[in-house]
């Protein structure tokens, strides 16, 4: 390109001057695209300085950190950092920090553990996080349960509410994949005659309020078919996973329609096992937390195996 200003586009052929923008005082480059012009503003120094700063930042980062590939290797950086090692170190720090109190839960002496208020002050909030992150999706934020998922903050238990019972429930689950899982099934009674089914449903629905007729035909049916699991008169407490049918606690519902559904299809709730996901100490801390949920509700656990 010629350096003679007179030959540049947009220049006055005699003086070589180009159109000056009155606002900024700069001349234009002489280009004109459908009315758009450009100013010949000199390169702003701040832009160059800023570019230089960001380049310096980058070069420092390249020197300190792993940065450029070299065939099968890469520049390691003078700090010698490795993200895997850093992540593991951070994890280790936290584990060490937790070990101070968590290790004490490896020994399931729950009475001694509960008697140490300092320990409880650290452990129970942590157990609450564990409960919220792992259990609340099924059992509710406060252990309030829901259709199909038992209440945990009351005093009625399928498998026992003492901390060691709960710990075992957590270790092996209920109807879970664990080889020693607690196993419980409410069989389907679809073979029963229709009128028998509705009689028994009405009978079971009336049990909670104590209004069930103990001498009717339904009572006989119940004694013959159900009492083996649910206990004499449906009082439960056999620690076989079959709930009491006379107390306030319900899993699926104890109105006649829901009982009918239960009888027609059977039930087999699934409680996952946690021994692969949580450490023994964490399970024990959680078990204590769950056991204390009902204490917090103002009553003592029933059905404990102690």
């Amino acid at each position: 390109m010629s350096t003679d200003p007179k030959t540049l586009p947009g220049a006055d052929p005699h003086t070589g001057n180009r159109e000056i923008d009155p606002v900024t005082g700069y001349d234009t480059t002489g280009h004109d695209w459908g009315g758009i012009k450009e100013l010949n503003t000199p390169f702003p120094k701040v832009a160059l300085a800023a570019l230089a700063l960001t380049v310096i930042y980058s070069v420092i980062a390249w020197i300190l950190l792993p940065a450029w590939p070299l065939g099968r290797d890469y520049t390691r950086g003078v700090l010698g950092l490795d993200q895997q090692a850093m992540a593991e170190a951070r994890l280790r720090n936290l584990t060490d920090l937790r070990a101070g109190w968590l290790n004490r839960f490896e020994d399931p002496d729950f009475a001694a553990l509960s008697d140490d208020p300092a320990l409880m002050a650290l452990a129970m909030p942590a157990a609450d996080r564990l409960f919220q992150d792992n259990c609340s999706a099924c059992h509710g934020r406060a252990g309030g349960g829901g259709p199909g998922f038992p209440v945990l903050h009351d005093t009625y238990w399928l498998w026992g509410g003492a901390p060691q019972d709960i710990a075992l429930t957590l270790q092996v689950g209920i109807n879970a994949d664990h080889p020693e899982t607690r196993w419980a099934q409410m069989p389907a009674f679809d073979w029963m005659a229709d009128e028998e089914l509705s009689e028994v449903s009405d009978y079971v629905a009336a049990m909670r309020s104590g209004e069930a007729d103990p001498d009717g035909a339904a009572a006989t049916l119940f004694a013959e078919n159900c009492a083996a699991c649910h206990g004499e008169g449906g009082v439960g407490g056999l620690m076989n996973g079959a709930p009491s049918l006379v107390d306030d606690a319900v899993i699926y519902g104890q109105d006649a329609d829901t009982v009918m559904t239960t009888l027609l299809n059977g039930r087999q709730g699934l409680m996952p096992y946690w021994s692969d996901r949580l450490s023994d100490a964490e399970i024990n801390a959680l078990a204590l937390y769950v056991a204390r949920m009902s204490d917090a509700a103002g009553s003592t656990p029933s059905g404990a195996t102690e």
């Binding site: 960001t54 980058s58 950086g77 993200q83």
Partner: peptide, 21 residues
Amino acid sequence: PYWVQTLGMTFSVMLLVPSWA
């Protein structure tokens, strides 16, 4: 790998100047 992340980070920072330009 960490080195790819460092490159991405530094080039993103240098990108600021032309963007602001």
